[in-house]
């Protein structure tokens, strides 16, 4: 479904991604973990070209994401949903209008069609009753669920999550994870960068550990958490333990 080949990214003279290979199969939930600065967010942002890769290729359903330009790139992005750490809902538009905008403007759906789909997606994330609210009236968890609905309404083939719960108060994290779990059960293909280790253990098909711009280790969550092979992963997990316990 999503294939990342020999992806490299440099910011000036610093190389943040060093030949990343990673593939996500249809319906798979791949979880990317790693210390901050390991390049995991940059990798994710290269997948829809919010960051321009320095070299390497990214394919979605055998179509080159990395070779699209202009309109073709806009079209390609419709197939790649993205959820940000900071939600980025449009503050001047109602919840419903947030979910409708790209459907109408980019997907060229009619307004009634877009509205119906938006309501369906809001229902899905449990926020249909907030359709007429403004984003500022919602809690962080609710805003993030609207952002998920906004991405889902475009019927993407794959969803990218860039630390979707990192900006949330602890008590609001659960509501967002619940929606993500539900998506997984429905067979959505997902690539998630997150620090929610419990969630990774429970819901991920595969966990990828990145450090220093390379994939150090990848495998099923049991192996990654239960039987880490590399020294770096062991060190990372042991540093993490206290916070997971607390």
């Amino acid at each position: 479904m999503l294939e990342i080949n020999q992806l490299e990214k440099c910011f000036g003279t610093t190389q943040v991604l060093k030949s990343i290979d990673l593939s996500v199969k249809p319906g798979e939930l791949v979880f990317v973990i790693g210390p901050s600065g390991s390049g995991k967010s940059t990798m994710l942002r290269c997948c829809n070209r919010l960051e321009e890769p320095t070299s390497g290729s990214i394919l979605l359903d055998s179509e080159h994401v990395t070779e699209c330009h202009g309109r073709a790139l806009d079209k390609m992005r419709l197939k790649i949903g993205m959820v940000f750490q900071g939600f980025h809902l449009y503050p001047h538009k109602s919840v419903l209008a947030n979910v409708m905008l790209a459907q109408v403007k980019a997907l060229k759906r009619s307004k009634p069609e877009a509205k119906a789909r938006a309501m369906e997606m809001l229902e899905h994330v449990g926020l249909a009753h907030k359709a007429d609210a403004m984003p500022s009236e919602l809690s962080g968890g609710q805003q993030q669920r609207v952002a998920i609905a906004r991405a889902l309404a475009l019927d993407p083939k794959v969803m990218l999550f860039d630390e979707p719960t990192s900006a949330l108060d602890p008590e609001l994290v659960g509501s967002v994870l619940k929606v993500m779990k539900q998506l997984r059960q429905e067979g959505m293909t997902m690539l998630v960068v997150s620090h929610e280790m419990e969630f990774a253990r429970e819901a991920a098909d595969r966990v990828v550990f990145m450090d220093g711009g390379v994939v150090v280790e990848a495998g099923p969550p049991e192996d990654i958490f239960g039987n880490p092979k590399s020294e770096r992963l062991r060190a990372f997990l042991s540093r993490l333990q206290p916070t997971t316990a607390a």
Binding site: N48, L50, R71, D74, K75, R77, L78, I80, M82, F84, G86, H88, L89, Y90, P91, H92, L101, A102, K105, A106, L107, A147, R150, A151, L154
Partner: peptide
């Protein structure tokens, strides 16, 4: 992030400018 959200949902530069950035 507003620009990124617009572009990530398939809006063009101009659409993002007129529908998202300019009204704000």
């Amino acid at each position: 992030g507003q620009w990124e959200a617009g572009r990530a949902t398939g809006l063009s530069f101009m659409q993002t400018l007129f529908d998202i950035a300019l009204p704000q």
